[in-house]
């Protein structure tokens, strides 16, 4: 089953309130990829992710697991959604449920299992993302930001999804936690064969885990490929993204000293 395309975005057009966000966007994600979407703030990374998650109206076609989600029936769409694990940027745990209940929600909604079994599964997922059993009984407000993110990842993984969508998974984490997070994601990808699609700003994390990526900017895809393909691309915009602040500082330094 390896190597086939799990997500294919074809000629995607999205406009919000009359403003064009995406124009003819084409990307494809292969099975087993850790696919990163990068780009400047406001370049529509999250919008693209939301379109894939069927939270955003779009024109064109997005084919996920060989189903065109734009045309599919509601039953078909919810079947595909069952294959998704999603982690939002702000973790977005249900504040009125404990972490254990939060993680168990979609399992309890899908199948009827004895309480003990659900608890075992949930605790396994907690351990998988590197959280202690103790957090099982805690409420989200009692957790730190990093722990919330991990709990949200555990919630995304509860049904062993084929596709894992992450919206800025490492933002707000300390470097060590971010590193751990990357390791977890790589491990999940390798061992469980989960295809990961993520939006990220964190360049360390980007180079750590990404196998393929695309750069969004100027309403379209500027480049797609492995990270090294992307860096080699001769594009001012991409260079700016990659060398970010450092790039600007370097240019300033150059202007001052007159030599390039």
């Amino acid at each position: 089953m390896g190597g086939d395309i799990v997500i294919e975005v074809k000629d995607l057009n999205i406009s919000l309130k009359g403003k064009t966000i995406h124009k003819n966007v084409n990307i494809s994600v292969n099975r087993g990829d850790i696919y990163s979407i990068i780009g400047k703030s406001g370049s529509g990374k999250s919008t693209l992710l939301r379109a894939m998650l069927m939270l955003q109206k779009f024109e064109g076609s997005i084919i996920i697991l060989s189903t065109d989600i734009g045309k599919a029936s509601n039953e078909k769409r919810s079947m595909i959604r069952k294959q998704f694990g999603v982690m939002f940027q702000a973790a977005s745990l249900f504040t009125s449920l404990t972490i254990g209940e939060n993680i168990a929600v979609s399992l309890n909604e899908t199948v009827k299992l004895p309480k003990r079994m659900v608890e075992n599964i949930v605790k396994f997922k907690l351990s998988l993302v590197g959280l202690d059993d103790d957090v099982y009984y805690l409420y989200p407000s009692e957790l730190s930001g990093g722990m919330k993110k991990k709990a949200a990842l555990a919630r995304a993984l509860i049904l062993d999804p084929q596709l894992l969508f992450l919206d800025e998974p490492t933002s707000g984490l300390d470097p060590v936690s971010a590193e751990d997070f990357d390791k977890t994601i790589r491990q999940l990808n390798k061992l469980l064969g989960i295809t990961v699609v993520m939006v990220t700003h964190d360049l360390d994390s980007f180079f750590n885990v990404t196998t393929r990526c695309c750069v969004l900017g100027d309403k379209k895809v500027l480049a797609e490929g492995t990270p090294f393909d992307i860096i080699k691309t001769e594009d001012e915009w991409i260079k700016k993204i990659f060398f970010g602040e450092r790039g600007i500082k370097f240019q300033r330094w150059n202007q001052k000293h007159g030599s390039y």
């Binding site: 003990r116 608890e119 075992n120 605790k123 396994f124 351990s127 998988l128 059993d133 009984y137 061992l191 469980l192």
Partner: peptide, 17 residues
Amino acid sequence: KKLLEIVKSNLKETAPK
């Protein structure tokens, strides 16, 4: 087997609270 190993290493028997 690999998957089994992951499960084994992460699974702890816990008494219900």
